[in-house]
């Protein structure tokens, strides 16, 4: 990921996120979903339910990627104390929480017809829910702490520790006996489904990048507005 956090001071908002990136990202999702739905044959065991994989699995991958960004920029904030790193980590955390919630909902919709239940407390589902709750807590923490330096420090600590749960979620289907199937990846899939999964993952990756950039732009604007308000309160300009 390009380093977009150290280009300017936090008080100066970044340039507007390209609208074209958004258009390309959403057009890519429409193309990828249409292609995969029309070209993939019904699975021998799951029938057409298999098509839920094209949204559920990429959403889970984007969750992991977003929380990886949180981890990297939280560690970087703790190291360099650059406020922009904190804002980027927080932006990725919010987007990651959205994808995490989406992954859980899609998994429940897939689980009901496949397993006969909406939810089961197995290792994969439970660890994914714990990951979601950690990052909801992270966002709540940011909302309740007024001092920006304390907020950044505590958030970085929670973000870095919380992201450690990502490899636990990923490996849970290997480490414990679960109802959830092993990880779906191009290496474990029938070749008939590989291209569709890759296309959907790339399309959702573009959406993830667009969302994080846009959220980061807003975070910088809000921070600059806070600076204005503080300067005004202190009798400055």
């Amino acid at each position: 990921m390009p380093d977009i956090s150290s280009d300017r001071s936090a008080a100066t908002p970044p340039p507007r996120t390209s609208v074209w990136l958004g258009f390309v990202a959403f057009a890519a999702v429409i193309f990828a979903q249409t292609f995969s739905i029309l070209t993939s044959p019904a699975d021998r065991d799951m029938g057409h339910l298999q098509k839920i994989m094209y949204v559920h699995v990429p959403a889970a991958w984007m969750t992991f990627l977003a929380f990886l960004v949180v981890f990297v920029y939280s560690m970087r904030y703790l190291w360099k104390q650059n406020e922009n790193d904190d804002l980027l980590a927080a932006s990725a955390a919010e987007v990651g929480a959205v994808f995490n919630g989406l992954t859980l909902m899609l998994g429940m919709i897939w689980g009901r017809p496949a397993w006969g239940v909406w939810w089961v407390w197995d290792a994969r589902l439970t660890s994914t829910l714990v990951l979601f709750l950690i990052f909801v807590g992270y966002l709540a923490l940011r909302a309740f702490v007024d001092d920006s330096v304390q907020r950044a420090k505590w958030s970085a600590a929670v973000g870095a520790i919380g992201a450690i749960n990502v490899p636990i979620v990923y490996m849970s289907v290997k480490w414990w006996r679960t109802l959830h199937q092993p990880q779906s990846s191009p290496g474990t899939l029938d070749p008939a489904y590989t291209l569709g999964l890759r296309l959907n993952a790339i399309a959702l990756l573009l959406v993830l990048i667009y969302f994080i950039r846009k959220r980061y732009e807003i975070a910088r604007l809000e921070r600059a507005i806070e600076d204005f308000a503080q300067a005004a309160a202190m009798g400055g300009k």
Binding site: L102, R112, P113
Partner: peptide, 21 residues
Amino acid sequence: MDRNFVIAAYSVMWVVVLGYL
């Protein structure tokens, strides 16, 4: 029944993503 669950999954995905957008 399968088709309804597939439609539900894709609908939820679009509602969440467009809602956040």
